[in-house]
């Protein structure tokens, strides 16, 4: 089937979107897209190639013709929105201390730092990271794990820090990462999470 569409007068990304719509609806074997600017020509070429077409271009006066032929007769695959993997579960990690385990305090701090640095290995399933009691000290300006927490936060993990606790230790002004939170939020998060891990 031969199909021709006119995308003259359209600015990017409109020509690509029209081409995408046509390929999805009609799955043509041969397709010609007429555009009137260099950027649209380049972008439509890239898109058709990405969809498995063999592409050639020609100049027609001040316009360009981008012609595609579905390679090996294969139908072009419909375009999917690039979605990240579906989350399998939502994990909430509660950090109630700045030391991991009991015994030696220096060792406990080292372990806690190492724990927080390694948390990212949970990948997209790590949903919320909540700091309460002495744990809030990991989120203030002296903490050595700030870059790690910021990275988690930028990666989409919700970092929550207990406001009452910050207030108790007089650290409200010194918190640099995470969102100040309250007990209602924490309880609600526990209810929504698939798994709550307590440290």
């Amino acid at each position: 089937m031969n199909t021709k569409i006119d995308c003259r007068g359209l600015a990017c990304p409109a020509p690509v979107l029209k081409t995408k719509e046509l390929i999805e609806q009609e799955q043509p074997e041969n397709l010609v897209v007429v555009v009137d600017n260099e950027a649209a020509k380049e972008n439509v070429t890239r898109f058709m190639e990405h969809q498995g077409f063999a592409v050639s271009t020609s100049v027609e006066g001040s316009d360009f013709q981008v012609s595609g032929r579905a390679e090996g007769g294969a139908k072009a695959a419909p375009v999917k929105t690039v979605e990240p993997e579906e989350l399998k579960q939502k994990i909430m990690v509660m950090v109630g201390t700045d030391r991991m385990g009991y015994g030696d305090d220096d060792l406990g701090l080292k372990l806690m730092v190492s724990f927080l640095k390694t948390l990212k290995e949970m990948g997209g399933e790590l949903w919320r990271l909540v700091f309460v009691n002495n744990g809030v000290k990991m989120t203030v300006s002296e903490s050595e794990v700030l870059p790690v927490l910021k990275e988690l936060e930028e990666g989409g993990v919700h970092v929550l820090v207990c406001g009452t606790c910050l207030n108790h230790f007089n650290l409200l002004e010194k918190k640099v990462v995470g969102e100040t939170t309250n007990m209602l939020d924490i309880v609600t998060a526990m209810q929504l999470a698939d798994k709550v891990i307590n440290i």
Partner: peptide
């Protein structure tokens, strides 16, 4: 990371082509 796939799909702003030219 996602920019590479979008570029392959032709979602490149006209400004990028002007810059290149």
């Amino acid at each position: 990371p996602e920019a590479q796939e979008y570029a392959q799909m032709g979602f490149i702003p006209a400004g990028a082509y002007r810059n290149r030219e």
